[in-house]
Design a protein around this nucleic acid. Structure first.
Lengths: 194, 194
DNA sequence: CGAAAATTTGACATGACTCAACTGGAGTGG
DNA sequence: CCACTCCAGTTGAGTCATGTCAAATTTTCG
């Protein structure tokens, strides 16, 4: 299994010795999901965190009307997990489904917690990761309130050109909090604007 | 200065020895803000984290139209800070303004970082705090997409009855992403419903 | 008491949604 | 290689939730 991209990712935050790397890798399991498979289903308790080596998944919530709301796209060098369920061990409100064939490295929650005990430095890694995730989540809330649907799409496209290309349009609409029809109208509008 | 509530708050996450508590407290400064004063202003770099002993502040962003968007209300036992600016040391996009006379305990960012070096356990505290904050931020995004304005208000009121009473209605409207006029209409509607 | 701030109310405007029909590819199988 | 289906995307008509603006009312507080 190819662990380089995980080690490389981690090295941006903290330095691990050879032995520490070995401990880390001993707790990790490689897994390949086919397109359409679920990493997590709403109602199940989340037991693992997945580092994406290759592929793409969507994490989303289904509301009482049956409407799907995408929280995040998880691509290479990101983590797929439901943190809420992971830390509380309550049933999850989210699904995580692969929208491409996806290869991941996964830890269980227990292994992750014992990892931070064996290598306290890891605590810092997770703290730094969480800091960034929280900042971007807060900024997204502000954008959702202060921008129109069109502005939100333009911002998304600018920030995530690769995801915009890679993912079906109706999922992007869901991520941005609008209907697929409306996003389609925005796009045809944008073509006229040029 | 009264540090009990901070120590009590921390003890929910980690256990500190007497010496560790002393180190922590040595880095802390008490400060009292009058109603209307700013803890942080948009454009300034955020240098401190404030633990609220007493009072209430709002953190908010002002968009290009001059519209105010409230990210959070910070009350007793919460933290007021702009994490994004704090970790990047870039100018902040947010204001934090006291809406009551507010007493806080504050650390500088440097003291906070040296604290985690002296007391590695503190890393865990911050990790756990961030985990919870991220989970609730993500859930808020989903609610904003899947609930109507009325449902969002009812949820808010149920979860935060004390804030609902304590804070002017137009600020709650801003926090919930609707206009003050519309929230007013929702409330009169709710009275008729009974 | 008086002024400023917050809230309410109503008429009207609009951004975004719903629904339904249509288009156009990408398989799939005969 | 054509016909068929399936899925994503497009388009248009009508509707609805929420916003805008402006005036009236109530509350707060010096």
């Amino acid at each position: 299994m190819n662990t380089d991209s995980l080690l490389n990712y981690i090295s941006k935050y903290i330095d691990l010795t050879e032995e520490e790397q070995a401990i880390l890798l001993s707790k990790i399991k490689y897994r390949k999901y086919q397109k359409g498979q679920y990493i997590l289903q709403q109602g199940d308790v989340c037991k693992i965190s997945c580092f994406i080596l290759k592929g793409c998944a969507k994490s989303y919530h289904i509301d009482k009307e049956g409407q799907e709301h995408i929280i995040n796209f998880c691509i290479e060098d990101w983590w797929a997990s439901d943190l809420g369920s992971l830390i509380s061990q309550d049933p999850s409100d989210f699904n995580i489904q692969c929208i491409e064939t996806t290869e991941v490295l996964q830890f269980t929650y227990n292994d992750q917690e014992s990892l931070v005990n064996e290598i306290p430095k890891m605590e810092r890694l997770f703290r730094k990761m969480l800091e960034r995730a929280l900042v971007s989540s807060q900024k997204r809330i502000v954008r959702n309130f202060s921008l129109t649907a069109k502005e939100r799409y333009l911002y998304f496209k600018e920030q995530n050109p690769s995801i915009d290309q890679r993912v079906p349009q109706y999922m992007i609409a869901s991520y941005l909090g609008m209907t697929k029809e409306f996003l389609s109208k925005i796009k045809s509008q944008l073509i006229l604007d040029q």
